[in-house]
């Protein structure tokens, strides 16, 4: 791809290792390349979206070492050695993650552009275990803007998955 050609020309490129959706990747990155641009332009993982490029919308949210983060504000070189999970790694049609299923069932999106970030954020929210009420879900999902205004459906979807996981927990006990 063209950006890789450019890179091979760049004396500034730094070798890094990232595990992206379970696959180890050894990459040459210029220090001014963000993780988001690396994912989208070099890795072709365009599921992570660029909505503002400044940490103001959450569309670029991915999981870095299991924690949600705005990939647009992360220089890729700084995350050498990290594990990255993007929306593509959560699940694909035919084998969707329960949160992806819940988003479809609750119509928790319209245009779909903020959706990968919302879902990555929601998956992290469940793992963090700090949201127990709709109020808390709303606050802990406020880093993901949805201009189509699907918020109430997003909360429904997350509540649904939270309910499933607590049911599972109860069943295991």
């Amino acid at each position: 791809m063209s950006s890789q050609d450019a890179q091979s020309l760049s004396p500034a490129a730094v070798p890094i290792r990232l595990t992206i959706n379970g696959t180890e990747r050894r990459l040459q990155v210029e220090p001014w390349t963000t993780l988001l641009d690396l994912l989208r332009e070099q890795e072709g993982l365009t599921g992570s979206k660029k909505g503002c490029d400044h940490g103001q919308c959450g569309a670029c949210t991915v999981l870095i070492d299991g924690k949600r983060a705005n990939s647009c504000l992360v220089l890729a070189v700084v995350k050498d050695g990290a594990e990255i999970t993007t929306i593509e790694g959560l699940g694909q049609p035919g084998n969707l993650h329960p949160m992806q299923e819940a988003f479809i069932e609750h119509d928790a999106f319209q245009c779909g552009y903020c959706t990968p970030g919302q879902i990555c954020s929601a998956v992290a929210l469940v793992q963090e275990g700090r949201a127990h009420t709709r109020e808390e879900i709303r606050e802990y999902m406020s880093g993901n803007i949805c201009r189509c205004g699907a918020y109430t459906n997003i909360v429904d979807a997350i509540e649904d998955v939270l309910g499933q996981s607590s049911t599972l927990r109860e069943a295991a006990e």
Binding site: P93, Q100, D107, G112
Partner: peptide
Amino acid sequence: RRVDGPLKVSGGA
């Protein structure tokens, strides 16, 4: 359900 849902929730759209 939206027929384009699976693509939109998986980054395929």
